[in-house]
Design a protein around this nucleic acid. Sequence first.
DNA 1: CTGTTAGCGCATTCAT
DNA 2: ATGAATGCGCTAACAG
Lengths: 346, 346
Amino acid sequence: METAVGARPGSGRVTIADVARVAGVSIPTVSKVINQRDGVAPATIVRVQEVVDQLGYETSLVARSLRSSRTGVVGILVPEFEPFSTELLRGISSATTGTGYELLAYAGLVTGTDQPGWERRSLSRLSGTLIDGAIVVTPTTALSSSPIPVVAIDPHTGPEGHATIDSDNEAGAVQAVEHLVALGHTRIAHLRGRPDLASAQLREAGYRRAVAAAGLTVDEALVRDGGYQEDQSAAVARDLLTGPDRPSAVFAANDSSAVGVLRTAAELGLGVPSDLSVVGFDDVPQASMTTPPLTTVAQPLTELGSRAVEMLLRMLRGDPGSAHVRLATTLRVRQSTGPAPAVVPR
Amino acid sequence: METAVGARPGSGRVTIADVARVAGVSIPTVSKVINQRDGVAPATIVRVQEVVDQLGYETSLVARSLRSSRTGVVGILVPEFEPFSTELLRGISSATTGTGYELLAYAGLVTGTDQPGWERRSLSRLSGTLIDGAIVVTPTTALSSSPIPVVAIDPHTGPEGHATIDSDNEAGAVQAVEHLVALGHTRIAHLRGRPDLASAQLREAGYRRAVAAAGLTVDEALVRDGGYQEDQSAAVARDLLTGPDRPSAVFAANDSSAVGVLRTAAELGLGVPSDLSVVGFDDVPQASMTTPPLTTVAQPLTELGSRAVEMLLRMLRGDPGSAHVRLATTLRVRQSTGPAPAVVPR
DNA sequence: CTGTTAGCGCATTCAT
DNA sequence: ATGAATGCGCTAACAG
């Protein structure tokens, strides 16, 4: 309600100097009061505290972190905020409440600058000062020798030197294919993710392993690149579904890719799941909003986030902890999969 | 691959001083090269650039922002990361790509410290230094006289002095009730949100207006407090649905509240929508994952975010722009609503 | 108990 | 074209 009285007229921000001046003490004294350090007279503490409240002063995170090493803030570094990372964020957020740490999520991928090193850059910019530790989401490079503790979620290069947490991509892919096989499908296509990413490679490996385990052979014509992207997948699916001897089922490397397949199927007049079964991967919240709702391999996204927080907090306490954690995936059967058509169209 | 050569052995972080030392120039020279200011010999530029690349140096966001006013970073201040704010984040993120600004989302609500002033605190801690402008999500207090441009999304106190953006809560509530009225419902209950929040008050007002407009009277026994929370709503719904002359439809103030109602209905063995119709508000992604999928009033969450970015960028350019923007809601009819039962049970 | 003196990493005058 | 000096807001040693 009250306007800050005695604040410097020019600057909008109230600094520790303003508080000191109004309270009639020196700057370090104010600092001591704020940081609850002893060696200050009770009367002074009260007076300074009053001025702090009156002026609405808050320490600048920036200035403090420049000086002292600990900030009580954990950084989450993501390339951008999309469904995958925001789900992780939710898990991280709920796991952080009550720990005394605050969260600072940084999207450091300046578009256009499609340099793969966004995570190094972000980490460099924030570490040493602003944040005590970091959780990096889907880094494409190794973050070894970081000045602060780092946990990588779903690293694109596989578990390297640093602490990582991911879900079992290969086993998840096996679950997907086994589900399709159990439904009687024999011609099962796979839309791969980005070939440079470990997760995509593992999902493809799981696909191949499960197909072989079912006594089927992988038709290389049915393995295409979807690039983890909806549009690309839609285009590739069109080719796949209009060609000769089309598959009765598609296992897409992620949900976006699966959505692309669903779109193309609808455009081609193919019924899902009557003519074509589709399985995705990730189970982002949007997966259940598709028509029909998507059967997909669920990554425990929020748990991935909360476990990462636990690992990081342990590291911040000096505890090394286990370096790699791998969580199980779950097949979420919705309505995009069904029995293989009795007569496979040719 | 290569380890930083020449970096200070002790510290993990590469500073501008390290670069200067290795390149054999002074710190200001390095600063000039990095910030593309002229007055440096071409040969020196090249040499410094090489050392920068070799050492993997990045300017510290902290140190830079302490010194210069502009940082090129926009802050998103949220109480915590939950579905509502993460959806906004997605819209903000996509609207920010290509603008040259980076995003820094800060969850400043330290639990336990349930002080309503989290937004002031966060703003104070980050502004003046770290961020050039801020988007504050669901602030509970007015943020007037901030040192930096601020846009508030869905402010809980209604449009005040500063720039705000929200959706038309009252009209949305009217849509919900009109939908139920059109289905033949005459006993329509309302689970209110938190009474101290403007959005909740507006939704209730819309409910009352629409009920009256339909020629019905509001039965005060059917207006209860759900507090925007699932558990509380579930409990209140139990009382409402087991009492005499129960309603055939419930308009819940938000999706969480509606989920609570669905849960209770299932526990009571009431069919939705055969025995009871339920409408929510917000349309968070999770709304379509309920059983049955929830009919709800959709706020354009991602658009809310992107419009906020546009407003903020305009303000950062010095353009005052329109102070208040209100977006329309859309009724999303799914499967939790249906015709009123022919015979209303009593 | 309090104030003075140093920096933290960087950008900006102003000299040279 | 380059470097020495200064200050951003704050905290950690010390000195008084």
